[in-house]
Design a binder for these strands. Structure first.
Lengths: 235, 235
DNA sequence: CGTGGTCTTGACCATTTGGTCAAAAAGAAA
DNA sequence: TTTCTTTTTGACCAAATGGTCAAGACCACG
C-alpha cells in the first residue's frame, strides 16, 4: 500500500502529478504517464493545506453544501489566495477525489491469487476496516459522491473500477471452482466487504449513538467481521 | 445546528406526521393514523407535493446543497407559495425526516421473540432489502443525514433508536443463549443488516456501474444475503 | 349575490455565493 | 542593490440564496 500521506496531499508525490483520474489504473493499463509540473515549496504547502481543509468541509457537507469561504477559513487562507492555488471549487473537489481513489482501491488490488483465499479475503476486510478507522473523512467524501449520483466519477466507475472488480471476480471464481471458497457471487461478496467496512466510517455517528459510550466500534467490528467472513467464505 | 426533537417520536401526534407516499404503508401496518388538524384538500395536496419534491431534491443534494427554488420548481409551485405551506427550508427537512423514521424502523420493531430466530432475522433482511428497492430516495435521505453528522437526529439516535436496538439486542442474546443462534454480537449483527441492505440503495450508482447492464442488483442481493445470513446465523 | 377566509404571486430584500482584478507585499536571482 | 517573479489581499461583482410582504385571485358558504 502506498504511503498514507498521499491521501492528505501532504507530500510531494500527489502535488506534482498533473491530475489524471484513476492514474494508477491508467498506468496499469498502459496509458501514457502524466507529466510533472515543478512546484515551489510554498505551492506544495498551501495546496496541501487547501486540500486538507477541503476534505474536512466537503466530507461534512457534500460538494454543493460546502462553501469556498468555509474552506478558506479552515485552511487559514484568504479566499482569493485559495483561488490562486485552485482555479475553482470544482477543481478542488476533483483533485481531492483523484488523490483518494488510488489509495482507496489499493487493498483490493493487493488481493493475490496465490496464497490462501480465505486469509487473503479476511486480510482485505481487515485492511478496509482499518481505512475506515484511519480515514473516515475520506470514506465519507467518497460516500457522499456516490450517494449523490457520482456526478464526477460515474465514468470511472463504469470503466476502470468495473474492470478492476471484474478482474478480481475472476480470481474469486477460480478459487470457488477449486473448492477453496464457498459458492457465492463474487461481485456481491466484494460489495458486502465495502458495505460492512465503510459503514463504520460513514455511519459513525449512528453506530456510536446506538452502542453508547465507552465502546470501540471498530475494534468490535474487527471481531464481528472476522466471524462473519469466516463463516461466509467456508466452502 | 441544534438537534430537532420529535423526529423519533413513535406515536407522533404531529399533524404532518405522514407524508403521502408512505401513508398507505403506515396504514397497512396498523399504525394509529393520528388526528390531524383540519386541512383543506388543497393543503393536503400541496403539502404532499412539496414533501415529494423535497424528498427528491434533498436525497440528491443533501440539506445544504438543496435549494428552495429547486424544490419549488420540482413541486410545480412558486417559491412564496411553497413557503406558505412550510415556513422554512428547515421545517420541510424536519417534517420529511419525521414522517419517514417510523416506517424506516418498523421492520425492526416487527422482530418477534416467538417464532424461529433465523427465519425472523432473514425475514427482517428481506424486508429491509425491499425497502431499498421501493424507497431508495428515502434511504439516501437518511444516509446523507447520518453521514453529515446527523445534525437533526443525533438526539433521537442516542435515545429512541438506541432504546429500540438495545431491546432487540436482548432478544437476540436470549436466542443465542437458547442455542438457536450463533454467538455473535447482536448490535453488530443489526449494523450488518443495515449496512448490507441499505448499500444497494445508497450506493446504487456504484453497484450498477460495477455489475454492468442487464442485471438486477437487488434480486441478486436477495439470494446473496440469504446465503450470507444463513451461514452467519447458524448456531 | 357578497363576504370572509384561503391561496397565489410579483416585487422586493439582505446576505451569501463563486469568482475577478489590480495592486501591494514578499521572495529569488543577479 | 536592482529586477523579476511569485504570493497575498482588499475591494469588488453578478448571480443565487432563504425569506418577506402586500395585493390580488380564488373559493366556500350564508
Amino acid at each position: 500500500m502506498r504511503p498514507v500521506g498521499r491521501i492528505f496531499g501532504e507530500k510531494s508525490d500527489q502535488m506534482n502529478a498533473i491530475p489524471t483520474n484513476w492514474a494508477h489504473l491508467a498506468r496499469q493499463m498502459g496509458k501514457p504517464m502524466t507529466q510533472e509540473k515543478p512546484r515551489t515549496r510554498i505551492q506544495e504547502k498551501n495546496r496541501a493545506r487547501v486540500l486538507e481543509a477541503a476534505l474536512e468541509v466537503f466530507s461534512k457537507h457534500g460538494f454543493r453544501g460546502a462553501t469556498l469561504d468555509e474552506i478558506a477559513r479552515e485552511a487559514g487562507l484568504s479566499k482569493p489566495n485559495l483561488l490562486y492555488y485552485f482555479s475553482s471549487k470544482d477543481e478542488i473537489h476533483v483533485t481531492l477525489l483523484e488523490g483518494l481513489v488510488d489509495t482507496w482501491l489499493d487493498p483490493l488490488r493487493d488481493l493475490k491469487e496465490d496464497g490462501d483465499p480465505q486469509q487473503e479475503l479476511r486480510a482485505y476486510v481487515r485492511r478496509k476496516l482499518q481505512m475506515s478507522r484511519d480515514f473516515p473523512r475520506e470514506s465519507r467524501l467518497f460516500a457522499q459522491e456516490i450517494v449523490q449520483g457520482a456526478p464526477r466519477m460515474k465514468e470511472g466507475l463504469a470503466t476502470d473500477l468495473k474492470a478492476l472488480v471484474d478482474e478480481k471476480a475472476v480470481v474469486l471464481k477460480r478459487w470457488t471452482a477449486a473448492g477453496k471458497l464457498a459458492q457465492i457471487d463474487p461481485h456481491h461478496l466484494i460489495f458486502s466487504i465495502w458495505a460492512l467496512t465503510q459503514h463504520y466510517a460513514d455511519f459513525d455517528v449512528q453506530v456510536r449513538a446506538v452502542l453508547g459510550e465507552g465502546r470501540d466500534p471498530i475494534a468490535e467490528a474487527e471481531v464481528f467481521l472476522d466471524t462473519l467472513f469466516t463463516r461466509l467464505l467456508e466452502p
